[in-house]
Write a protein that binds this DNA or RNA. Structure first.
Lengths: 118, 118
DNA sequence: CAGAATCCCTATTGATACTG
DNA sequence: CAGTATCAATAGGGATTCTG
């Protein structure tokens, strides 16, 4: 067995363009409906939101609660098991925060591009 | 600024099909030459190895030492800055290890496929 | 409302050959 | 030895349309 598959096993959970955003939302807000997630992450579309949620669900990170009613209502939340990711996410977040400052200091950040003044 | 860009900033470093494998090698073995890395990660090709190393180098995670001689000799190692990743990598590794067991228990692992008895 | 299905496009990965 | 250059294959992401 490849040693690094442990890394990859963990990374696979987090990788996917929208998974960090989704996880952050669910961690911050607890239970959220599909539509709420979509509103909270404006640039995502339904297909991607569905897809990434399904992957997280398959990995037991998020719990999906379906209310069988019209109109439909589906709630998502971090599963108990998923909460075990908190250490990883915190490590990632801490390091990421420091790293952004580091890169900023090294190269400068082109905020002009990445943040249209709006 | 999007909150999750901190996650992403960190994830970007680790994401890339071969980066976990490369990092693991360098962490385990210290200084390694290009060819050694290639031997240690048999399925990678030169292009990918070069590319991923360059990205890691650009992010200050690995150090590249070039000896100007014939035949060429280039050594790679984790940079001082890159060593700061250890917390993240450990968290990832620990969680990944547990997660593999978890998924194994849930779904069973098709070892028959993933590990040809060789 | 919460998706499923379809089609398209681009970024990432890979195979191969060439070079100082 | 340690790459670069080029081209081909693929997977991931996205726009749009349709549905119970």
């Amino acid at each position: 067995m490849k040693e690094y598959c442990k890394f990859e096993s963990a990374l696979d959970i987090l990788v996917g363009k929208w998974k960090p955003a989704i996880l952050l939302q669910l961690i911050s807000n607890g239970i959220m409906r599909f539509g709420e997630l979509q509103k909270a992450i404006p640039d995502i579309n339904k297909k991607m939101l569905t897809q990434q949620l399904r992957e997280l669900e398959h990995n037991n990170i998020v719990h999906r609660e379906v209310y069988n009613q019209i109109p439909p209502k589906v709630e998502y939340s971090i599963s108990e098991y998923g909460k075990g990711l908190s250490t990883v996410l915190k490590a990632l977040n801490d390091w990421g925060t420091a790293h952004m400052k580091h890169m900023d200091a090294l190269y400068g950040v082109d905020r002009s591009e990445s943040e249209p003044k709006g």
